[in-house]
């Protein structure tokens, strides 16, 4: 999530995710000048497609005047870690699991 800082952004996004059964497992937010950025790791329920949560979160982002993006964890693992590329569901135990699709 990227955008101008304002009270209630995290509340708004978290509420949107909770409404769709998405479980936030890690979260880091910071402020550079007035620029707000937040990276969130979340578990998506099996019956929710990535396309659905992507469009819902983008809509929620617009309501809160921020840009919201959804990407699979494997993309970040692939582009930042030199180990073998991992494919398939990245489901591990809750707490360090990030996505179920």
């Amino acid at each position: 999530m990227l955008g101008d800082d304002a009270p209630g952004i995290i509340h708004g996004i978290a509420g949107c995710l909770a409404a769709h059964g998405v479980n936030i497992v890690d979260l880091h937010a910071r402020l550079d000048a007035a620029r707000f950025s937040m990276v969130m790791e979340a578990m998506i329920p099996q019956d929710l497609t990535p396309e659905t949560i992507r469009s819902e979160l983008e809509r929620c982002g617009r309501d809160n005047k921020i840009e919201a993006y959804v990407q699979h964890e494997n993309i970040f693992l692939a582009t930042t870690e030199p180990g073998p590329v991992r494919v398939g569901p990245a489901v591990r135990t809750q707490g360090d699991a990030l996505a179920s699709h």
Partner: peptide, 16 residues
């Protein structure tokens, strides 16, 4: 947790 800088760098490659 992934480093925010890494996440943003990858995101900008995809989006921007």
């Amino acid at each position: 947790m992934h480093r925010t800088e890494d996440v943003l760098a990858t995101l900008s490659m995809i989006r921007q």
